Amino acid sequence: MIILGAFLAALGVTDAFRDTHPSGISARRRYTALAAGLATLIALLATSGAPVATKVGLGISLALLLAVWALLDVITRAIGATAARYAAFLSIGAGITIALLLADDGSTAWPSWIPGPLSDFPPARVILVVGIALAQVTTANVLVRLILDAVNVPTKEGSDRLRSGRVLGPMERLFILGLGLAGNLTAAAVVVGAKGLLRFPELAASESSSRTPSPIIVQSATGNTPSPAVETPPIHQGPNPVTEYFLIGSFASWLLALAGLGLALLMLG
């Protein structure tokens, strides 16, 4: 549990420093984010009761995968956006797989100087839940954006029209995670449905504006008096980009929340 929680927490801390957009950041901020993630990974791995050789081997492997994720914009410039997306998804998938299949947490306990109710919970459980929550708040936003890019859904127009998405997304994922751990997925479904109802007026307005015919002024043959405006159908005839952004982004966000919940239930029993 501690190994998986450490890796997810390191991802979350990295993206908290890097911001939720993986490109267009300064080199200083990029490497500061990587350093913060590595420090989190090392600190949490040190709390594991696994043998030293196991912690060192896992630490090196997970640190390399974390570096691939943190340096995603550099890798994009080197090998292209499509290959970089595959590398990003594989780095997270490989890290989780290693933590699930190869990790041996051993037994560990809280230090004696930690009082209060926190000491009643096993450290491994606390680190796992905190790691999953951190990843849901920050890393999941980057994953959603990568998924939107992978299916060629324009993110700029959608994020400009639905500006609160980067805040609502983490909030709803935490709601789903918390309600799922509490055994109340029905309430989580209500949260999902409420989001769609609240967004419906914005989506309807966006859909209407994208299909409004645009007038064209036709110059007369003499060049003096323009002819009456002729309405032409809008250029965009497919699904509205904002609607696509909302639907695909929302479903991707919900699936990531359910994946986090599944990991938590799998490890916590």
Rank of each mutant, 00 (worst) to 15 (best):
L64A: 15
R85I: 02
P22E: 08
G180S: 12
I98R: 06
L261R: 10
A53F: 03
P241F: 08
D15N: 15
V151I: 13
L90D: 03
W69G: 11
T232K: 11
L179A: 13
G57Y: 00
A221Q: 14
G158M: 05
L263P: 07
A27K: 12
P170K: 09
G49T: 03
R166H: 10
M1C: 06
Y86H: 08
G24I: 00
R18M: 08
Q237W: 08
A187D: 00
D160I: 01
I2P: 05
N224L: 15
T47V: 14
L268C: 07
P111I: 02
L143K: 07
L102N: 04
A188D: 01
I42E: 10
G57F: 00
L146N: 09
S220A: 14
A252S: 15
V68P: 00
L64S: 07
S227K: 10
A78Y: 00
T54V: 10
P228T: 05
G269R: 07
R28G: 13
L71I: 01
A187C: 01
L168C: 03
G106N: 08
N141D: 12
A84S: 11
G269Y: 01
V142A: 15
A109M: 07
L181M: 15
L197W: 09
S164P: 01
A10F: 07
V74M: 09
V192K: 07
L71R: 15
G238P: 00
A205H: 10
T97V: 14
S119V: 05
D149E: 06
A33W: 00
L258K: 05
R211P: 09
G269S: 12
I42M: 13
E244K: 12
Y245M: 09
A150Y: 05
P239L: 14
S119Q: 13
A94D: 00
A84C: 04
A53G: 06
P117W: 11
P154Y: 01
A39K: 04
T54H: 14
A53T: 04
L197G: 09
L198I: 15
R199V: 12
P111W: 06
R30A: 14
G12C: 10
I42R: 09
Y31P: 03
T225W: 07
L258T: 05
V167K: 08
E172F: 07
T20V: 15
S61A: 15
P239K: 08
D73Y: 01
L128V: 02
A35Y: 02
A9G: 10
A83N: 03
A194I: 10
G269W: 02
V52K: 06
Y245C: 12
S214A: 11
V129Q: 13
P170A: 13
A150E: 06
L62H: 11
N240G: 11
L11G: 12
P111F: 12
Y245E: 04
E244C: 07
S206A: 15
V144N: 12
L101T: 13
L174V: 02
R85M: 05
D160Y: 04
I3W: 11
S210F: 06
R163P: 02
P22I: 03
P51F: 05
L179F: 13
G193V: 00
A78C: 03
I114K: 12
T138P: 00
A205D: 15
D160H: 11
S206I: 01
S250W: 04
A16S: 10
